[in-house]
Design a protein around this nucleic acid. Sequence first.
DNA 1: CGCGTTGTTGAAGAGCTTCAAATCTGGTGG
DNA 2: CCACCAGATTTGAAGCTCTTCAACAACGCG
Lengths: 258, 258
Amino acid sequence: MTMRASDLDRVKALPLFRNTTPETFRDVTGGAFLQRFPSGTTLLLEGDTVDFLYVLLDGTVELQGSWKQKETTLAVLRPVSTFILAAVVLDADALMSAHTLERSEILMLSGEALRRTMKQDPDFCFAVAQELSGCYRGLVRGVKNQKLRGGIERLANYLITQRVRQGQPETIQLPHEKRVLASLLGMTPENLSRAFSSLSTYGVVVKGPLVTIGRPEALERLARPTPLIDNHMPAADTLVGKAEAERWTAPERTYAYA
Amino acid sequence: MTMRASDLDRVKALPLFRNTTPETFRDVTGGAFLQRFPSGTTLLLEGDTVDFLYVLLDGTVELQGSWKQKETTLAVLRPVSTFILAAVVLDADALMSAHTLERSEILMLSGEALRRTMKQDPDFCFAVAQELSGCYRGLVRGVKNQKLRGGIERLANYLITQRVRQGQPETIQLPHEKRVLASLLGMTPENLSRAFSSLSTYGVVVKGPLVTIGRPEALERLARPTPLIDNHMPAADTLVGKAEAERWTAPERTYAYA
DNA sequence: CGCGTTGTTGAAGAGCTTCAAATCTGGTGG
DNA sequence: CCACCAGATTTGAAGCTCTTCAACAACGCG
């Protein structure tokens, strides 16, 4: 319950709230409360009624879906991210469950208040629509990634995306356990392990959570990232020509829950 | 360009417009125009700038994504459906291409006008947010379907969904070519053909576009449909108990582009 | 009726999963 | 601080699923 002013500032900095008036922001965050959860806590189960918009302020949250004893990871969230916005807007049941992968700090905003405020403030409502559009497009990218690429290709593209996000270092750090990554990429842990081995041909060396990408160009030739799936800006020197470079200008925001 | 009044009525009946004021409806449909396209026409390519919200009034449209000479079907739309709403809201490039599978009638609404109207009418903006939420949730279902189920299971569930939508007849009709269905289900045409054969064990008999489901209970035991993925209401007599039945009450609208 | 497209079937092989066992690793209690 | 343990990762072997290629059959449109 002890909410630091800096926490609210971080929430205010989210695209969803960046341009809201102070009044609207107060309306939405009015009945909000901050909670701390230990690692491994289940926040929400598939099918649960959703009463709050969650905002992850610190820690890591995994969203997953399940069927017949199988589970799959739909997204791994890091601060600062909102989640289950769509269920809140529709006042519907959750389609995925959420649980913490680390000790986490989560702000819970009243869904009721959010819907009410949307109807009062068209600018805020528009921001919600934009956020939802971005989430939707993130999922479209995810489906294309899943249906059009094989496991090794998905891993290769994942590594390239991470490299870009981490500032193009030679060695990147995997942001979570490999079994979670495997589930996110739609494969078994064993298969992920073997996929990493296959990539040694392309200069990829794995040491625990550290992955060294020795020959980025070789990896990119295999991965063939595209802005229509991967939504990131690659290193300029890996691009073939100006025409191709232009396709990469102005990447959208990334939506982690995609 | 000849737009019948009945066409506008059908658009007005869409969830997106059902509760809008006549003024707002006029604002959005103001500069709209109706176009007729022959079968096989490409309406939009991945990466294209999107200037219009499309409304399919008659015919069939396929949405697909591609990568490295591969293509996959993301949705098959039938009247009355809107598409590429998310790209319009963000004024962004299309992530999927669209083309007609039959001669089609399509209404094109100005994206500019749509965005302007959203900012003026909070109720309409809220309706857009609801629509986007539904689209998002449709995709979440799609990802779960794709990642958690094998090919035969996806086909079995597809057949059950069709049976429900067509009013539980013993014999259903496939709404499009099998190769399109295969792509939608994320498999090759050959594999779909073999999947149909496998289902003969469960009372499924295929004759061209007609599929007879001889033993629905057997098929459901294999398919195990769930409201957290399939979003339809099954026949009451296939449910095991009251508790399970309750999980199926109040299905959401279905979003075909999911 | 003919031809091109669509659908089916067979065989081969690539990709992925499962099971089992052998490390490896991080975190905990002493 | 260290030994220990549970869980995570890797590796191997076997088997299943799915794709690919090729050939053939069926269908539908002109």
